[in-house]
Design a protein around this nucleic acid. Sequence first.
RNA 1: GAAGGACUGGUC
Length: 295
Amino acid sequence: AMGLWEEMNMKGLEPDVFFYNTLISCFCTKGNVDRAKEIMSEMLSKKISPDRVAYSCLLRALCQKGKLKEAKQLFNEMIRNRIQPDVVTFTGMIGGLCQLGRTKKAVELFNFMVEKRQDPNSTTYNVLIDGLCKAGLFNDAFKILEMMVEKGKNPNIVTYNTVLSGLCDLGKVDIAMKVFDSMFNNVKPDSWTVSTLVKGLCKEGHLDKAEKLNRVMTEQNKTTDNATYTVLIGAYLKARNVRKAVNLWKEFIQLGLVPDSTTYSTLMNGLCRCNCMNIAKGIFNKMRISGPSPT
RNA sequence: GAAGGACUGGUC
């Protein structure tokens, strides 16, 4: 990285706001918030003012790491510098808080942004609904969903998938299937929808229904993908139905789907647990030849 | 119709 830095200086290239923000974003996603803050200080020393994007990045990362005092300070600094937080800023922070497990704080922040007359968009609602579902607070999530509809923000495919996932986690796959049947009027189910339901059905032991759903959706809407098959194959291996799993794996290849590292991990783990070392070896060799697709 | 920040599913 230092090499690149020097090279840029030699060529007389001045890093701009975009460049700095890219760096900040990288350090934030790597969880190195301190380094990201240093980058922001450096911007200031070079007379480049951090903009809304720079602040939003850091704020989300600070929330996610539980550095809430620092986040508050930075937020105030942002306001002091006359940079207004927007819906993305708030949504990011809400998401960070949810990942932290502080859903109560997340809801507070949601209310705060409404007070500040920032209109939550569908992504904001989706983030909060997902956070509440994952915290096991489905009823609260459902209230937010109702609020979303009241405010005229129509649930999109991500909203549906999020809610379906929440229901499946609760073991309410029967209700999830009813929602699925009713969603076609509003949105078009995608492969995420299918894999979510397939996972839910498998969790309850309905492998046959899961497979059928995938089959129907593949034929009618071409909505299948790597992840969906990985769920199905993994479930059959867990049920020690190696024959079925291997057939699905062949089908997977025939469809032209491309296995990645998760696909192979699932296969290797499952086959080894079934004591099918020979089959595992064969697939492993295939991977060594073609290589898993990059994540 | 390109853009540096926010949302959903797969193994461990």
